[in-house]
């Protein structure tokens, strides 16, 4: 197995790491919002029918 040391690969500058973290948080929030939206819309569209399902 190859051993990795600190000099392997690309090392992000603090600015790059900070902006990547900010982008990841924004993407996470956007995906979370989409999940909430689709959950809520599903409930609204099914309406009272949500309780009437074949057993």
């Amino acid at each position: 197995m190859t051993e990795h040391n600190d000099t392997d690969g690309v090392r992000l500058t603090p600015e790059q790491a900070k902006s990547r973290r900010a982008r990841n948080i924004a993407i996470g929030l956007a995906v979370g919002l989409l999940v909430v939206i689709f959950y809520a819309v599903t409930i609204v569209k099914l309406g009272p029918g949500i309780l009437h399902r074949p057993m």
Partner: peptide, 10 residues
């Protein structure tokens, strides 16, 4: 280039 764009830029 590695991006330094923040959510504000997008």
């Amino acid at each position: 280039r590695i991006s330094v764009a923040g959510p504000k830029d997008f």
